[in-house]
Design a protein around this nucleic acid. Sequence first.
RNA 1: AGGCACGUAGCUCAGGGGGAGAGCGCUACCCUGACACGGUAGAGGUCCUGGGUUCAAAUCCCAGCGUGCCUACCA
Length: 718
Amino acid sequence: MNKGTLAKGYEPGDVEERWYSFWEENGLFEPDPASDRDPFCIVIPPPNVTGFLHMGHALNNTLQDILCRYKRMCGYNVLWQPGMDHAGIATQNVVEKDLASRGLTRHEIGRERFVELVWEWREKYGGVIMNQLKRLGSCCDWSRARFTMDEGLSKAVLEVFVQLYEEGLIYRGDYIINWCPRCHTALADLEVEHEERDSFLYHIRYPFEDGRGGLVVATTRPETMLGDTAVAVNPEDERYRDVSGRRVILPLLDKPIPVIFDRYVDMEFGTGALKITPAHDPNDFEIGATHGLDLVKVIDDDGRMNELAGSYKGMDRFQCREKVLADLEAAGLLEKVEPYRNSVGHCYRCATMIEPLLSKQWFVRVKPLAEKAVEAVREGRTRIVPSQWEGVYYEWMTNIRDWCVSRQIWWGHRIPAWYCDDCGRVMVAKEAPLTCAECGGSGLRQDTDVLDTWFSSALWPFSTLGWPDHTDYLRTFYPTSVLITGFDILFFWVARMMMMGIHFMGDVPFRDVYIHALVRDAGGRKMSKSKGNVIDPLDIIDRYGTDAFRFTLAALAAQGRDVKLSEERIAGYRNFVNKIWNSARLTLMNLDEQDAGEAPENAVFTLADRWILTRLHNVTREIQASIEEYRFNDAASLCYHFTWHEFCDWYLEMAKQGLYSEDETLKRSTRFVLRKAMLSVLRLIHPFMPFVTEELWHRMPGTSGSIMAAPFPQPGDY
RNA sequence: AGGCACGUAGCUCAGGGGGAGAGCGCUACCCUGACACGGUAGAGGUCCUGGGUUCAAAUCCCAGCGUGCCUACCA
């Protein structure tokens, strides 16, 4: 490497590419599993295979990279475990869209061919985001990259599913679930996004069977009345004293249904009479269950009315609503229509309105798992930073409901359950049984559903390290040191990793969880692919360089605050990168190879020399403390202020006296301190700006090897 | 319906019981042998409103107003 004068300004382009290859080729990202140094491990939040690097990834991975580089320089045996998520529904949707552009549907080509196509898609585009992470400078051990659909990780999924089933923590049953008529699958409660909308509350009269008056119910979804099997009132309600044992006629279908009493009914709301649709509403389902009501499912999987809906059969649910209202109006049974605001659930993948409906699904009984996960945080075995998120975590975990894990899609881990054609017996096993365990029949069919994509993600901290095998990596790096993630997946992912990690490994998956804010768009909305409001980080990197971009993210990453990125800010830190470059330029113009050794004999240190070393001592301590406490913005601003306004503005200016002096001893002494300080600055800043510091490190006299392998400065160095 | 944040310079945002800050923008002067992606010197804020605690509050507490987000089975 040339040690010599530098160009006048820093040009990131080729420098970044050159050093990234250098690091990778020299295995600098790989830990030594046999090392006796303290381990430090982070598992990456696996990006979706279909993903492209967005600001959220950029922030998340920059923070992880800062920690990994810092810890490695501090002497830890560092593993940053990378990989990708198969992202069930999201990926299936992408590939389906691609098919649609060729005029095909997945049903036309069949399950087997479709899954093949998804794998082909993965081969073609799956590497994209990994290469984008490399441009960010991420020091992941790419030789260990994992994918949730890998053989090993799939084995872990089977192991977990079967064990949970055997422990009675997984069961199958008929419940009201959230159904997306477009994705054609069940969704977990978490996968439903609620949005407040202007709507209407319709008051509908249900006449008594005996012809004496009627009850008026209020509903926002009149089409579901076709599935009503009762009307409920509160037993305390004075107005409905005399309804006991009577029946009302369900309008439009002319079907008598009972009036029942249930304390669930709120007397204050509407008329105090509630229509009960057990097959299409979760509350009604429970009321129906306690009263032994019939379940009448009138909406099918496509969101259309079925044969039980009488003359409405074949209409889609929205059409049906209009028709039902018109018919009620005509019959004089629509008493009142009032404007009403309520929140309506939508699919988190395609924004289609969710239809709650009765369906047979697989569930994880999470209560017992959640209790231990709560305990772990309460006891401090896992620390959540910033601590404000602890409350949110407890709240969610203590009110948690069973997790619906089956999805009616094709891309994912197939549920390891088989059904006997002859006797109907269900068998759950790691391998396909040949014959029925009950009747010996050989007509066995595997469940056609796959698992929720978050099921495999929940195992990520140990499945990527080799579990269920007892590997060296698992022994060395579990529990991992820290998980860095956005709060948007606190429940989806973090909570579930806690539950699974504790249950299957007997210990928490990570010591610390650092929750960072989200990078939002101008309107404060989440940036997401589906909303199309994403600003491309790669474009920023092309124009300003990775170091400036990373430094900006770190500087803005105040705990618990959203990051609103402005381009002016990035330009400002680009200037800072250039400032560092030029401070090194000045340094190099005044040093030669002779300055690489020990302090000169009879060295004279000026006040400026002693001052800058004292300042370095303090700043080093403060930067270390900031990084250790995940105060990335503080660390970044310490680097910025110290380097620019103390090292450059004052020290370099004052050092010029010594550098240009006729006094050889003074000159050599100054050069010695200047070099020492410069090398410290580079190492302090390296975790934030890996590329420019690596380039400059190699240019300085007396350095060898990568700055990544150089020790991080310690307060005692000065 | 609950919960959590936030309201600081023209803009975007840090900070946080006693000195009001950064980036960009703005004014004036400097291409001084590292850097004009620079230097020096400046202008600019009742730190949302009203109470309270304190020797002292922008900073802590309460209320209000405004904004954003998260969770939620009231039709």
